Simulated assay, not measured.
Amino acid sequence: MKAAPARRLRCSFCGKPDKEVGRLLAGPKVFICDACIGVCNGILEAVPATFAGWDAMSDEQLLGALKPSAATVDGTRAVLQSQVETLRRRGVSWEAIGSALGVSRQAAWERFS
């Protein structure tokens, strides 16, 4: 009897295969890689656990939240760039990428090429 091919694991968030990421953390039918965990941690650091709104925070607290917020944006941007680069290597058109993002082909090309 022929053995079934091994199933390749992927991060459920960025889509990278297990061979391209450090480690994958498993959940019920999902996996998350180190990089995506870092993005999630940045989001959690940016918003206090007992968030009562930006107006309830002092100037110092808001200033302290800027760096983690910027890191979250940078991390999310890096994940998106990686996804687009993977799609392009697979030969997916700028038209399809733009459509998936809700922008024109030209806008997708200008943003990610």
Rank of each mutant, 00 (worst) to 15 (best):
73 V>D: 00
73 V>S: 01
73 V>K: 02
73 V>H: 00
73 V>L: 07
73 V>T: 00
74 D>E: 14
74 D>G: 02
74 D>Q: 10
74 D>K: 14
75 G>V: 00
75 G>A: 00
76 T>K: 05
76 T>A: 15
76 T>H: 12
77 R>K: 15
77 R>M: 10
77 R>L: 08
77 R>Y: 14
77 R>E: 15
77 R>D: 15
77 R>G: 04
78 A>T: 03
78 A>D: 08
78 A>G: 02
78 A>L: 03
78 A>V: 00
79 V>M: 13
79 V>W: 06
79 V>A: 15
79 V>S: 15
79 V>G: 02
79 V>C: 13
80 L>A: 12
80 L>I: 07
81 Q>D: 11
81 Q>N: 10
81 Q>Y: 09
82 S>I: 06
82 S>H: 11
82 S>F: 10
82 S>L: 05
82 S>Y: 07
82 S>V: 06
82 S>R: 11
83 Q>K: 11
83 Q>I: 11
83 Q>P: 04
83 Q>S: 10
84 V>T: 01
84 V>D: 03
84 V>K: 02
84 V>N: 03
84 V>C: 02
85 E>F: 09
85 E>G: 10
85 E>K: 13
85 E>S: 14
86 T>C: 07
86 T>I: 05
86 T>W: 08
86 T>F: 07
86 T>Y: 08
87 L>F: 08
87 L>H: 06
87 L>M: 14
88 R>H: 07
88 R>L: 14
88 R>I: 09
88 R>E: 05
89 R>N: 12
89 R>L: 12
89 R>Y: 08
90 R>Y: 14
90 R>M: 13
90 R>K: 14
90 R>F: 15
91 G>A: 04
91 G>F: 02
91 G>Y: 02
91 G>D: 02
92 V>W: 00
92 V>K: 06
92 V>G: 03
92 V>T: 10
93 S>D: 02
93 S>V: 05
93 S>E: 03
93 S>C: 03
94 W>T: 01
94 W>E: 01
94 W>H: 00
94 W>Y: 01
95 E>K: 15
95 E>D: 14
96 A>Q: 13
96 A>I: 09
97 I>P: 00
97 I>A: 00
97 I>Y: 01
97 I>Q: 00
98 G>V: 04
98 G>E: 03
98 G>F: 04
98 G>S: 09
98 G>C: 08
98 G>M: 06
98 G>D: 05
98 G>N: 05
99 S>P: 06
99 S>H: 15
100 A>Q: 09
100 A>D: 07
100 A>F: 03
100 A>C: 08
101 L>H: 06
101 L>S: 09
101 L>G: 05
102 G>W: 01
102 G>C: 06
102 G>L: 01
102 G>N: 07
103 V>N: 07
103 V>S: 04
103 V>C: 10
103 V>Q: 07
103 V>Y: 08
104 S>E: 11
104 S>R: 12
104 S>Q: 11
104 S>P: 09
105 R>V: 03
105 R>I: 02
105 R>Y: 02
105 R>F: 02
106 Q>Y: 12
106 Q>I: 10
106 Q>R: 11
107 A>T: 14
107 A>V: 10
107 A>G: 09
108 A>G: 05
108 A>V: 04
108 A>L: 12
108 A>W: 03
108 A>T: 04
